[in-house]
């Protein structure tokens, strides 16, 4: 009994300072111009100034305006070609990727990811940010012939997406495919160069699920485009050349 009383006393003393939750309120508040404030401006403005200068930096020129349209368009061809070229360099320098892996390889992107046209004339870094605001990275995915078939059918259903180093003639029951100019008969694994977003199944690209192997380079696609535009002055026409057509 003494022990119990002692324990009770102890508990009472211990719990005197012990605050217990009685109730709560929740109020999430939208941050609007009602709270206009300039006290951080002195910290932010030097960064903004330098950033704007960087954004206004000219990284190259376009000889014609590149716009997007399915199933194939200059903007898509430019986007896929630049990525495919960067992937070849990445694969060559990577100790994990065998050069033979790139023999049957192509690039596949999505029109949804290309957010602005490249306009004729000077191309600024800011323009490239508008074109590719996402921080997507160059990713290589090795998929089976079976998955390649699914990919071709996806291209039929989606009415095309940007591709490079490949050609497709598509119908609901027949999907003909060429890689690097040679017919591909869905009889061997292929390497697909794409973005990490798509490689993870984005834009319903379910054929990228459970790949044979996947390499995320960690290289931002935007940086690839900035470098590519810089190196290929001025950008050409990337004319439509029947990379994706539909057959009856």
């Amino acid at each position: 009994m003494k022990l119990l009383l002692g324990a009770l006393l102890f508990l009472t003393i211990a719990s005197c300072g012990t605050k217990k939750v009685v109730d709560y309120d929740g109020a999430n508040t939208e941050i609007t111009s009602d709270y206009e404030d300039s006290s951080l401006d002195s910290i932010i403005s030097p960064y903004t100034k330098e950033m704007e200068d960087k954004m206004n930096e000219v990284t190259g020129q376009a000889s014609v305006t590149l716009e997007k349209q399915d199933p194939e368009s200059p903007l898509g061809n430019f986007a896929a070609d630049a990525m495919y070229e960067a992937a070849l360099v990445y694969a060559k320098n990577s100790s994990e990727i065998d050069t033979s892996d790139m023999k049957k390889s192509l690039c596949l992107l999505n029109f949804g990811g290309l957010r602005a046209p490249i306009l004729e004339g000077d191309i600024t870094v800011g323009n490239v940010f508008e074109f590719m605001p996402f921080d997507n990275t160059l990713t290589l995915v090795k998929i089976s012939a079976e998955k390649a078939k699914e990919m071709a059918y996806y291209l039929f259903e989606k009415h095309g997406q940007p591709v490079s180093n490949a050609k497709f003639q598509l119908s609901s029951d027949k999907q003909l495919m060429w890689i690097g100019g040679e017919p591909y008969n869905y009889d061997e694994d292929i390497m697909v160069v794409t973005s990490d977003y798509l490689a993870n199944g984005g834009d319903k690209m379910s054929f990228f699920k459970d790949p044979i192997i996947k390499w995320d380079s960690g290289i931002l696609m935007r940086d690839i485009y900035i470098d590519y535009i810089d190196a290929n002055r001025p950008l050409g026409e990337y004319a439509v050349e029947d990379r994706i057509t539909f057959i009856k």
Binding site: C16, K19, V22, Y24, D25, T29, E30, I31
Partner: peptide, 21 residues
């Protein structure tokens, strides 16, 4: 940073264990 989250918790100031504990 579109919204600031807020949760207010009320505690028994007197720490009266009879009530809540």
């Amino acid at each position: 940073g579109l919204i600031l989250g807020r949760v207010d918790f009320y505690f028994d100031r007197k720490g009266n264990p009879d009530v809540w504990a």
